[in-house]
Amino acid sequence: MQAIFQFISDHQLMIYLIVLMIFVGVELIEKVPSVLHTPLMSGANAIHGVIIIGSIIVMGQAENLFASILGFIAVFLGTLNVVGGFVVTDRMLEMFKKKK
């Protein structure tokens, strides 16, 4: 129990941020027309690709072969997530522009 309280007081700012972000996420999506659900899902998919920052840190600190190989794969997969995610979303949205 002590450990939990200690953890909370050590990470107060992060916890505030989490609570706030949950509400922001909900608010942002609430009034979206259903035709945009798929592009939105795809766009959100690209945004969680920010995990790549973690993989860059892992790769940047790698000291042994094990960490280097896994780090390399992680950066590669993270890049796929980010680049692929944004490009796919853009292609979907390209279709939404009005044609005359």
Partner: peptide
């Protein structure tokens, strides 16, 4: 943390 929670909550609602 920010991006992750944002997608986590928006994704759940979606």
């Amino acid at each position: 943390l920010f991006g992750g929670i944002l997608v986590g909550s928006a994704g759940t609602l979606l």
